[in-house]
Every structure is written in structure tokens, then in C-alpha cells.
């Protein structure tokens, strides 16, 4: 491999990572269906957070409209499946393609016209909202009334058509998350990763030392969009129903970015930790409210908001960087 190399990941980090993966692989054998659904949600948020992290954490481009790519991936693969019988094992390619086109278009327009910072973030929101309302009136995929996939019987697992048990979906997602993690790990140690880092820290300086800033920013947006669209394919076939306001909504974009920011922006493990912490917090609050017999809507979210407020106030770099220091994993830079 060309480019500067970092020290290999610390042995300790590797062992911990291996243990975590083994644990995640074994958990479905011991947990009940409810906990499996919570684990699936954690992995989903970890995956999609990692996808977003490529763009913001690595290359420093703040997207607040990432639900756009998730939604496009979901609708493209689901529409191909429902209307033409194309299995998602092929349809995901089309989903990636559409997400790449949209990512490239937004990136091209923004970076060529010099839209950056807050303005770039608002541009991404605008595209996501525009698409959401467009899909509300797109009757071929059900419009605002929703688009539904037939719920199949679950006596065998069909990976080609993505019909099967919750365990199948869990392992698929685990494989996706692990793959995304490895990809990001590789990228961070490659020339591209260092270019992104340079752009994130100081775009003008990066330009001055000869980095093709436009090209590498485009690469980050497109890769991030493609990865996010796969999360959409998963969602479509896991939930079997799609509503524009649910999948393209700004709430979804916020949900995507909370994990990596709370966990630790630009770190590999941050999105996973953030997804875990936030999901456990949300589910824990729900359980507590149920146990206390509180039925008032909104109470859970108020506590959730307060926790979010405290994390961002007192751990501005996220949980992972400070945890990493305590675990003694800080030997090799920004992992």
C-alpha cells in the first residue's frame, strides 16, 4: 500500500473488537425477540451513522439530509421488487446507483458553486425535504399513503429476496456493519483518508499542498451516499412499508447523525458506541416509564433531550475519545 502507514492497531484494541464481534454473533441465541429487535436497531443506527461519518467525520462536510440517500435506496429497491420482481440481491445495485447520482449531483452543485458550512448543511436539508414532498405525490410508489411489500411467510430464510426471520436480518446487518467498519478502517489508513483529514482540518492548506479538494470531497459524498442507500434497502425489506414522511423526514436525518456525534465524530468506534448508548437510553426510558405507569406522551423524549443536552455540553468530542483514554487504547492516534 502506498502512502504513509500508521502503526498497526494496538493488540488490545483488536482483542476487544474480536470479543465484541463474537458477543454480537452469539447474542441472538440467548436473547428474546424484543431484545433482538433492540440489537437490530442499534446495529442499524451504527451502520448508517458510520456511513454519515465518512462524509462529516472524515472529510468534514456536514450533511443534515442523509435520510435522502436512505430513502432513495429503500424506494428504489422496493419499487424494483414490487413492480418488476427484481430481487434486492440485484436491486441494491440500482439503489447504490441512484444514491451515487444524487450524491454526485448535490456534491457537484455545492462544491462547484462554493456552498459550504451552514449553507451546505441547509442545502442538504433542502434536497431531502424536496424529495420527501416529491415522493408524497409520486403515485407509482404509493405517494403519501405509503408503499407496501408483501409480508412473506417465515419458514425459511431467503437472502436473495430478503424474506426471512428477524435473525436473518440481524446477521445481515451485522455483516454490513462489520464490512463498513473494515472499509472505514482501511480508508482511514489510506492516502484517501489522510487527504480527507487534511481537507477537514484546513481546506485551503490542503489545496495548497496539491490535494484535489473537489475530487476528494466528491468521493466522500458519493461513498457516504452509497453506504447510506444500503441501509435503505435493509429498512425497506425489514419493515415492509415505506412512508415518505417517515423515511425522508428531518427527524430521520437527525437520528442518523446523533450516534456518531454522541459517540465521537470521525472515530471508527464512535458511531457504534453512540448508537448503543442512545438506543439503550431510549429503550431504558421507555421501560422505566412503563414500570412507573407514566402514560403521558412526551415524557420519555423530554428526558432523552435532557440527556442529549448534557452529553453535548460536557463531552463535546463524544463519549468514545474519553472512554478510549480510560481503556488505554490511545496509543495509535484517532482510532
Amino acid at each position: 500500500m502506498s502512502g504513509p502507514r500508521r502503526a498497526a492497531p494496538g493488540g488490545r484494541a483488536r482483542v476487544l473488537l474480536g470479543l465484541l464481534l463474537a458477543l454480537l454473533m452469539l447474542l441472538p441465541f440467548v436473547v428474546n425477540p424484543y431484545l433482538l429487535s433492540v440489537l437490530t436497531l442499534i446495529l442499524y443506527l451504527a451502520y448508517v451513522g458510520q456511513a454519515w461519518n465518512v462524509m462529516m467525520g472524515f472529510a468534514g462536510q456536514l450533511s443534515l439530509g442523509h435520510s435522502l440517500y436512505v430513502g432513495l435506496g429503500a424506494y428504489v429497491s422496493a419499487a424494483l421488487f414490487v413492480h418488476y420482481g427484481v430481487p434486492p440481491a440485484l436491486g441494491f445495485l440500482a439503489a447504490i446507483l441512484v444514491a451515487l447520482v444524487f450524491g454526485a449531483a448535490i456534491g457537484f452543485l455545492a462544491f462547484r458553486f462554493g456552498v459550504s458550512g451552514v449553507y451546505f448543511a441547509l442545502l442538504t436539508i433542502a434536497f431531502a425535504e424536496f424529495t420527501r414532498i416529491g415522493f408524497d405525490h409520486f403515485d407509482w410508489v404509493g405517494g403519501s399513503g405509503g408503499f407496501f411489500l408483501k409480508v412473506a411467510q417465515r419458514d425459511y430464510n431467503d437472502l436473495v429476496n430478503l424474506r426471512g426471520s428477524p435473525e436473518m436480518f440481524y446477521y445481515l446487518l451485522l455483516a454490513m456493519t462489520a464490512g463498513c467498519f473494515l472499509l472505514c478502517h482501511r480508508l482511514m489508513q489510506s492516502r484517501i483518508g489522510f487527504y480527507w483529514l487534511a481537507i477537514r482540518e484546513d481546506q485551503e492548506a490542503a489545496q495548497a499542498v496539491g490535494i484535489d479538494v473537489f475530487r476528494y470531497k466528491m468521493l466522500a459524498v458519493m461513498l457516504s451516499a452509497a453506504l447510506a442507500s444500503l441501509a435503505g434497502v435493509f429498512t425497506a425489506f425489514f419493515n415492509n412499508n415505506l412512508f415518505p414522511f417517515q423515511i425522508f423526514g428531518i427527524e430521520k436525518s437527525i437520528e442518523i447523525i446523533l450516534g456518531p456525534i454522541i459517540g465521537g465524530l470521525g472515530t471508527l468506534f464512535g458511531p457504534i458506541l453512540g448508537a448503543f448508548v442512545l438506543t439503550v437510553l431510549a429503550e431504558g426510558l421507555r421501560g422505566t416509564m412503563e414500570a412507573l405507569g407514566v402514560v403521558l406522551p412526551g415524557v420519555k423524549q423530554v428526558f432523552y433531550g435532557i440527556c442529549l443536552l448534557f452529553v453535548i455540553m460536557f463531552l463535546p468530542h463524544g463519549i468514545w475519545p474519553s472512554l478510549r483514554r480510560r481503556l488505554g487504547l490511545d496509543s495509535d492516534g484517532r482510532r
Binding site: 458550512g117 423524549q301 423530554v302 435532557i306 442529549l308 453535548i312
Partner: peptide
Amino acid sequence: PEHSQFILLVAIAII
């Protein structure tokens, strides 16, 4: 940084 401010105000909005 902007994303930090964003999360702060989103948290306030959620509350």
C-alpha cells in the same frame, strides 16, 4: 463547531 451547536439546539427543540 457547527455540528455541536446543531445538536445542542436540536436537544433544546426536542425538550
